[in-house]
Design a protein around this nucleic acid. Structure first.
Length: 620
DNA sequence: TACTAGGAAAATT
DNA sequence: AATTTTCCTAGTA
């Protein structure tokens, strides 16, 4: 009997959110002078949803599709084992292309054993710098030429998504390491849907192209920190301070930023973003175009020019009128409409922090850190952002003390990296529910509004996310003192995990929880990793094409038609998720066929090999 | 050979 | 109890 599920009720028509880009101040998001985006060990970037086919190659550290760092420098994790070593040890599928025959899991586990991570299947090491092929995903075609990526060539995601990896417990069932029928590689290179390789979009170049420059200033994090401190953005829109509206004394860099965010425009033009979040449309025709009027800057110019500009009163009045109008529009935008953008950024950062914590095996709350944790975090941050090396002995202190360091303290201990380190720590303190951190938010948010006018309230979530625990993608770190006894297994498993994040809507739910609840759910995460239905898992993979597009992908997203490109790998991932090392496609497909009767999935009308279709409303 | 389809029973949650 | 796993036979391309 088919399951009954709430139907989606999306607003329509969908509006073009690309118009936001004229007003959206990307400087609110963390960025380094090199356009590096912090906090992303696994999904690489808060902007990653801008690059659904592959993360930008700006990170020196590579990640495989499981979100495992594959730093060629041999990044040392907290367990003292280089990820390079790990990769080598368990590297079972590092094929650059799709033609390499797959080994059997049995071979891969030789010497590893179940508990030793032998059943943790590593996926291919995605080469972010691969420029060999143009890419086609989901019907969108991307010229694989970093220099030429433009509005018309940018891959536009059909859904806003993240690429954060999940981590799951390593209590793998002790099953005989005998593998049943293992179907072979089924990647047909001649298939019109065949995906050749991952593609590369250089964020740095892309941002350059959009004339967007971000000057790295640690104080830019304060606004973001405020947002992180107040995760109830869906229900209570933040106050206008987070607006791109210029402040009375705007920083120099703000006035110099040209806000022609073509990338963001392109992404937001995708109406699935609106659909995904059930965002009501609004009249964007009221939004001024910077290309046309640059209205948002006019009030800045007015103020700046007051002393030395004797422009005509009429012109001033006109400008004031425009400014007032603009402010009203921006006010409206910020109070309600821009929230999805902020929420995405916040959501991304929170997950990134969690995942980094998981990776490093440290608490998401910096005040809980030990000396070693502080050191691990410092090393990671320095590596991640290519900062000058520092003497970690200067930071030999516990988390509480570390959190109380001021920027001046950082300056004394690490002059060249003080600003960056301090800024990142601020982010972590905020994102990590750091209750007793000393830094107060610089711009307190207004109390939550009881108004239901917020467009971020999500009455009808994607079915695939309703049953999804928000904890599944969050940190399993020691936030709640829930560190596993077998840390090695935890680390091995976490570093080999391939799980993409839950769909964004669930993440919104995650964000809507208060801090305490977030901690609780984070703690409970480790027991829910295997509580997932196959159809949910498949949708999860499908929602992360940059990681799993080579093994499963949508053929028709709207109709819920998808194709399993690599049955072995999908089965392997499923087995990994469910701690069933003996899983194979034969069994997986049997489970899928069980869905036929239940009305969850079906074969397409014209049955094609490895092509299935989600039934309505599961395809939503 | 790889996949599809489905019965049946066991295992898991 | 629901779901998934495991094993099986039979069939198709």
């Amino acid at each position: 009997m088919p399951q009954t599920v709430p139907s989606a009720n999306y607003g329509s028509p969908y509006c073009d959110y690309s118009a936001f880009t004229t007003d959206f101040d990307l400087s609110l998001l963390p960025a380094s002078p090199e356009s590096q985006v912090p906090l992303s060990p696994t999904n690489l970037s808060p902007y990653s949803y801008l690059y659904p086919c592959s993360p930008p190659p700006m990170f020196s550290t590579n990640f495989d599709e499981d979100g495992i760092m594959c730093d060629s420098l041999g990044f040392v994790d907290v367990k003292g084992k280089t990820t390079t070593d790990i990769k080598t040890e368990y590297d079972d599928d590092d094929d650059e292309g799709d033609d390499e025959p797959l080994q059997t899991p049995l071979k891969k586990t030789s010497g590893g054993g179940v508990g030793g991570g032998g059943c943790c299947f590593f996926e291919e090491n995605v080469n972010f710098n691969d420029k060999t092929n143009d890419k086609q995903y989901d019907g969108y075609y991307v010229k694989n030429d970093e220099k030429t990526i433009g509005r018309n060539e940018l891959l536009i995601p059909t859904t806003v998504q993240t690429t954060t990896g999940n981590y799951y417990p390593l209590t793998i069932k002790q099953e005989p390491m005998s593998y049943g029928l293992e179907y072979g590689h089924h990647n047909n290179p001649t298939s019109p849907y065949a995906i050749k390789t991952e593609t590369t979009i250089d964020l740095k170049e892309a941002l350059k192209e959009t004339n967007f420059t971000i000057k790295y200033e640690s104080n830019q994090y304060t606004t973001l920190r405020n947002l992180l401190k107040n995760p109830c953005t869906e229900e209570s829109p933040p106050s206008p301070p987070h607006l791109p509206r210029p402040s009375p004394n705007p920083p120099e860099e703000t006035t110099e930023v040209k806000r022609d965010h073509q990338l963001l425009r392109s992404v937001l033009r995708d109406t699935s973003f609106q659909k995904k979040f059930n965002i009501k449309s609004f009249d964007l025709t009221k939004v001024p175009s910077f290309d046309d009027s640059n209205l948002l800057h006019k009030d800045i110019k007015m103020e700046e020019d007051d002393d030395n500009n004797g422009s005509a009163k009429q012109q001033q009045q006109q400008q004031q009128q425009q400014t007032t109008e603009t402010n009203e529009i921006v006010e409206e935008l910020t109070s309600e409409k821009i929230e999805p953008v902020f929420s995405l950024a916040i959501e991304q950062i929170r997950k990134d922090v969690d995942n980094t914590c998981n990776l490093l095996g440290i608490s998401s709350d910096p005040t809980q850190w030990t000396e070693d944790d502080v050191k691990a975090w410092l090393i990671w941050t320095i590596r991640q952002y290519s900062l000058p090396m520092i003497d970690t002995n200067c930071f030999k202190m516990d988390g509480v003390t570390f959190c109380q360091l001021t920027e001046n303290d950082f300056q004394q201990r690490a002059p060249q990296s003080s600003s960056t380190l301090h800024a990142h720590l601020e982010i972590w303190k905020a994102a990590g529910n750091c209750g007793d951190c000393s830094s107060p938010p610089s711009l307190p948010l207004p109390p939550p509004s009881s108004s239901s006018s917020s467009t971020m309230i999500i009455p009808n979530q994607d079915l695939s996310t309703v049953q999804w625990s928000p904890t599944m993608h969050s940190s399993g770190s020691s936030t709640g003192g829930d560190l596993s006894d077998d840390d090695d297994e935890d680390m091995d498993y976490s570093t080999s995990s391939s799980s993409p994040p839950p769909p964004p809507s669930s993440s919104n739910k995650y964000l809507m929880k208060d801090n305490n609840q977030t901690i609780k759910t984070t703690t409970a995460k480790t027991t829910s990793g295997t509580h997932i239905h196959l159809w949910q898992f498949l949708k999860e993979l499908l929602s992360c094409p940059q990681s799993h597009g080579s093994c499963i992908r949508w053929l028709d997203r709207e109709k819920g038609v998808f194709k399993i490109e690599d049955s072995v790998r999908v089965a392997r991932l499923w087995g990994k998720r469910k701690n069933r090392p003996a899983m194979n496609y034969d069994k997986l497909s049997r489970s899928i066929r069980q869905y036929y009767k239940k009305g969850i999935m079906k074969k397409t009308e014209r049955s094609q090999r490895l092509v299935y279709q989600f039934c309505h409303p599961y395809c939503l």
